[in-house]
Every structure is written in structure tokens, then in C-alpha cells.
Design a protein around this nucleic acid. Structure first.
Lengths: 194, 194
DNA sequence: GTCTATACTTGGATAGAC
DNA sequence: GTCTATCCAAGTATAGAC
């Protein structure tokens, strides 16, 4: 699902700003005025590109998911062992976290989901599904070729590892010296390696 | 601001409503008007009890943390083995999650932290510290008496387990059939039991 | 595509009567 | 303690000029 998203240069900058704001303060924490200040355009101009905040929100998640999907495909072609693929996966979260303690777009929106438009929630759900399928496949393969060992189902392990990474970013925001997603991931992963 | 939390019956109802709203839609997702509809009082009356939204937020977290602290002490006196104490701890999150997929108050506020008043963030941090200290102590004891086994530090294990639980609630909100915090916790805990 | 101007709504907060 | 009334700021959104 390499959904291609075509945006004009201005729309691109607006979506970039919106994404950064979602990762910092959440959907309910930003306004068109905030975006206006970042991109140097008036609120009305933003509405020209995105008819409503919901449309903007949906676009932000779609783009984010597409970019993430690309990163997962890249990992798949450049890394072959299951444990190393999983570590590269965790690094995607680590990188975001190290960047000023930004949250995952969908971690933030997941927290806010009960106040969001169903259209936004649907995209968030797709993102998580995308992650879980990819993780399950990698784990499945690792179990098959004995580079991983566990008595649990790949689906269960996938959901657990994803939750761990999302939670690590969330909790890490509030601590002075957080471990960070990658170290926690390694801690759990080490119990699965052969 | 007082550590002990004594509230009039009306203030109590307001704080209850505010807490439920935080757990559902977050700090930025609710307003005095929402509370007004729940408790059947006008906005002005709410301001009489809580001068500002920040004061209300701080109160909600303090109460929540105090209640949580009570539950932790209860676990400590009623359960003796480290693994069982940890499972009872995870059940605190499981219970909240099973209740209409509510989030942990501080999980939600942690996500929103970059848009919150420092006074609120300070209370959230205290809550997490409270949890980490308690977990570390339990784990430390478990390692000492060989009911737990790990090459990692109690502090690291504590932070990992807390993150896992917070993340499980967050991710679980967006899935049709989530595992839930408790099952994920057991999955990881099983690797630590002797 | 971008702007100014504006409509409309909501949100946090206060004043003052009861 | 609770109410009505009100203020002011902010937020989403639209109309229409350039």
C-alpha cells in the first residue's frame, strides 16, 4: 500500500507543520493560527489547501503512514536477519524520540482518539495495522528460521513490541533521563533471541 | 498547594468528572462546559471551586496519584511474592483499560505534556516516579530472593514495564481485539520468572 | 494562491445578585 | 455555593478582492 500523496509545495509545508504540531502538542493542541505562524501564511490560505481541520488531519496521518511504510520496505530489502530488522524498526521510534521528544503521530492521535473525527481514527488504525502486520511477518520468519524463539504467537509479540515502543516515547517525555524506546526494545528482544 | 486532598462534595464531583474527561479525551479535549453538563452545575460554579483549569488539572492528578499510591500500598500488604505483586500492579491498568478503554490519567497527560502548564507536568512526573520507585523496589526484592531473574537493573526493568502498560492502553484503543495491558505484561514477565 | 475582513462558536474567566 | 450575565480571546470557517 504505497499510497501516493500529491500535494502542492504550499500544501506540503502546511502538512509538515501540522505533523510537527501533532507530534508536539496533539490534534487538540494546535490551531490553524499556529500553522499560520510556522509557514508564514494566513489562516484563510491554509483553508484554501485543506478545507477543514479534519481533512488536514487525515492527510497528515496518510503521509506519515506512507513514509513509514517506505521505511519498513527499506528495512526489508537492506537487512536480512529478523533480530536486526526488529532493531532497525525500533530505531525508527528512537530517532523520532531523540528529536526533541516528539511522539509518534499515531501514538498521539491514539491517545486523543475519543475526541477525533472517525475519518482520522480510521487512518490511525490503518497505521497500527500496517505496523502489526509487518512485525508479525518478521517475527514469524524469525521463529521459522530459529533466529528467534518464543512460545507466543507472532501477533501477540508484535502487539507487545509496538505497545512497548509507543509507551516508551510517552513515558520518556516525562522523565529526566529516560531509557528511550530502543533500549527498552532491546531489553525485551534479548529474551527472544537465540 | 496541599498534599492532602480535601474537597467539598461538589468539588469532588467536579474533580471526578474532570478525571473521567481527561481519561477519555485529554486535557485539551474537555472544557468547563463539558463538566458543567456532567455535574449539572454552571460554569461559574465550577470556577468557584477551581479558580482555573490548571488548578483543576493539578488537583485531578494529585487525587489520582494518591489513590494509586493507596492501591500500591494495599498490594504490598496483601501480596508477598514479587511476581504476584507485579501481576496485581498490571491489573490496575487492565481494570482501567477494560472500563471503556479509558487511558491512565498520566498516560494521557504525558502525551499532551508539551502543551500543558508546568504545574500539571510536575504532578504527572511525580506519578511516574512513584510508580517507578515502587516497581523497582518490588523487582529488587524479587531478584534478591530469586523469584525473579534478569541481567538488567531493577530501574530499567521498572521503566520498561511501566512503558509497556501505558503503551498497551494507548495502542489498544485503536484495535478491534486488543490484547490488553495485562496479557502483554504477563508475556514479558514470564521471561523474568524463575 | 494569497490576502483582508468577518461571521460564528466555543472556551476560560469575572462581577455581582440571590 | 450557585446562579445569570457578560467579557475577551481564540478557534474554525467563509466571502470576496487582488
Amino acid at each position: 500500500m504505497t499510497t501516493h500523496i500529491e500535494l502542492s509545495p504550499s500544501a506540503e509545508r502546511i502538512a509538515d507543520a501540522a505533523q510537527a504540531l501533532v507530534q508536539q502538542v496533539g490534534y487538540n493542541g494546535f490551531s490553524f493560527e499556529h500553522i499560520s505562524q510556522i509557514v508564514g501564511m494566513r489562516k484563510a490560505s491554509i483553508h484554501h489547501h485543506f478545507g477543514s481541520k479534519v481533512v488536514l488531519g487525515v492527510t497528515v496521518v496518510r503521509r506519515y503512514a506512507a513514509q513509514f511504510d517506505g521505511a519498513l520496505r527499506q528495512i526489508h530489502v537492506s537487512i536480512k536477519s529478523a533480530p536486526d530488522r526488529l532493531k532497525a524498526y525500533a530505531d525508527l521510534f528512537e530517532t523520532t524520540f531523540k528529536n526533541d521528544h516528539l511522539l509518534c503521530v499515531c501514538g498521539m492521535l491514539g491517545a486523543e482518539s475519543k475526541s477525533l473525527d472517525p475519518a482520522v481514527n480510521a487512518e490511525v488504525k490503518k497505521f497500527f495495522q500496517l505496523n502489526l502486520v509487518w512485525l508479525s511477518d518478521v517475527i514469524q520468519e524469525g521463529l521459522a528460521n530459529k533466529t528467534l524463539r518464543s512460545e507466543h504467537e507472532p501477533k501477540e509479540l508484535a502487539e507487545t513490541l509496538l505497545s512497548l515502543l509507543e509507551g516508551a516515547m510517552l513515558v520518556g517525555r516525562c522523565l529526566k533521563t529516560p531509557m528511550g524506546p530502543r533500549r527498552m526494545f532491546d531489553l525485551v528482544l534479548s529474551t527472544l533471541e537465540t
